[in-house]
Amino acid sequence: MTAASVLSVESVTKVFSGAGKPDLVALEDVSFSVGDGEFVAIVGASGSGKSTLLRIIDGLLPATSGAVRVGGEAVTHPGFDRAMVFQQDCLLPWKTVLDNVAYGLVIGGAKIADAHETARRFVQMAGLTGFEHHYPHQLSGGMRQRVNVARALAVNPRILLLDEPFAALDAQTREIMQGELLNIWSESRTTVVLITHQIEEAVFLSDRVVVFSARPGSVREEIPVPLPRPRTMEMKRSEVFVSLVDRVWRLIEHEVRKAVEEGMA
């Protein structure tokens, strides 16, 4: 663990035990750390407990054993040093874009006027100026996810947690959103932990890819991404990019195939 690490996951194990069901070990002895301002992507086959880990980092779920520390402090519940962007549409349908972006601030006790002022900045940052008073159902899927990102960033978190943020979007929108996420991120330079099952996305966005193995989820390998920033679409065709994607794919290929077969069985 380096001195600059802002997030450290220390031997986290998560066991789900339900009455009458065998215990399910979702995560086993997961350890890694994330440096200040670093963009880390976690990839793995479905069933590798990625989402569970993100919820433990956010404080939504307790770890069965082990600890998550943010800036040295053990995480016990959700807090404003972390903010999460969910996969699904998690915007409040009865609130406007501005009110949705201000939501976290208001929950945290900010005055409405102050929260709106901050929210307006992040609405602008997310490229949604002019849509402040629209309701979520009046926006496209890509725009809704930008509101989601803006809502998380508005509380000024030390760590931004992204749970498959673009999974519900079509392929083209997804490409565009990856670029836009990097633009927004380059302005805030928050520490980011991204969960995705898309290897290209992980490599393109991150400084380091943490590859998970499945059932139980554990860290298989950490792969640094030496691509320079700012990242451009052309880099996706570079040799470094392609070989990195290939390397990650080889690490999880067996488990992905197994998951697919189990899905079909």
């Binding site: 939504l60 959700p78 807090g79 903010a83 699904q88 998690c90 409040l92 939501y103 976290g104």
Partner: peptide, 24 residues
């Protein structure tokens, strides 16, 4: 439940979740 989870991730209290998510 996703809306409730999002509210919880902002550390919303039970009462805040009721007032801002469940009741509306």
């Amino acid at each position: 439940r996703h809306l409730v989870e999002a509210a919880r991730s902002f550390n919303a209290s039970y009462w805040q979740i009721f007032r801002t998510v469940t009741l509306p």
